[in-house]
Simulated scan of single mutants.
Amino acid sequence: MLVADTYLGHRDDATVAEDIDTSDHATVVLSDTERQRSRVRTETTDGCDLGIVVARDLADGDVLEAEDGTLVVVELAAIEALVLDFADSDVSPTAALELGHAVGNRHWNLAVRDRETLFPVTDSKERMETTVAELLPADVPTRYEHVPPTTFDDEGVDHTHRDGTGMHDGGGHAHDHGVRTIDGGDQ
């Protein structure tokens, strides 16, 4: 088994790109779960058994080096997302709060892109649609779209509830809802 254990950088870095261009490299496609693990056993796209041992979350385009000098380019598998399109809707503050409360209670990660809200599909589509349908104004269309898993990475936005501060009064627990705002070009 080939083991990639050295992080070299990103394929967009000039030096790394040159190394890729001048070598016989391998490519691996990782799931969202795999990219966040420090140790993964998988296969390259050409079927070579590969172990990845790095102490960092991996991103699309990261380049690793195996112990034999082989470069390994990381690609991320897209994930499916439920998209709520608010572009042609005048959602009331009450409707927005009710929807936010309902999906927050389910601990759904979300990303906001322009006037759209995206949720990774982590439950059955029917359940997710039922959850939002009861609270969503009729003029808000929904659809599914495949997006990079990094769409839902938390960029330092902390939505922690603190018992006793008036922000949350039910149990004294803390959790991160993973809310991320992205621009329209991050697809």
Rank of each mutant, 00 (worst) to 15 (best):
R143A: 10
S31K: 06
E80D: 13
H168R: 10
D154G: 10
V40E: 00
E116L: 03
D88W: 07
T160G: 10
T94Y: 14
V29G: 12
D176T: 06
R56S: 10
D19P: 13
C48G: 15
T42G: 03
V157R: 01
S92Q: 03
F152Y: 02
T150H: 00
T33Y: 10
G185L: 07
D158H: 11
A133D: 05
H168K: 13
R37N: 14
R56K: 05
T33S: 09
A133H: 03
I20N: 04
R37K: 11
V73I: 15
H107P: 11
I79H: 07
T22V: 14
F119L: 12
V28H: 11
L82G: 14
V16G: 00
T44Q: 00
D49A: 10
A87D: 03
E80F: 10
N109D: 15
D13S: 01
E145Y: 07
G170I: 02
D49K: 09
E116S: 13
A26S: 11
H10S: 12
L136W: 01
G166A: 08
E75I: 08
P149N: 05
L8M: 15
E155R: 10
H159E: 05
L135M: 05
H10A: 08
G104Q: 02
G166R: 02
E80N: 13
V53Q: 07
E80A: 09
V63P: 03
G170F: 11
E116G: 03
R41V: 09
T33L: 08
D163C: 08
I52A: 02
E67T: 06
D123K: 09
L118W: 14
D186T: 08
V40G: 01
L110R: 08
H107Y: 11
L64K: 03
A174H: 09
E134H: 09
T6E: 02
A66M: 05
G184S: 05
D57F: 11
H175I: 12
D88H: 03
T131Q: 06
I79L: 08
D21A: 12
L84K: 05
H10W: 14
E75C: 12
D88C: 02
D139W: 09
E43I: 12
L30A: 10
R106A: 06
T142L: 13
N109F: 15
P141F: 03
D176A: 13
V28N: 07
A17C: 02
D12Y: 15
T142E: 06
R37T: 03
C48P: 10
D32E: 09
T117I: 04
V103N: 00
D176G: 10
S38T: 12
T160R: 03
E129G: 15
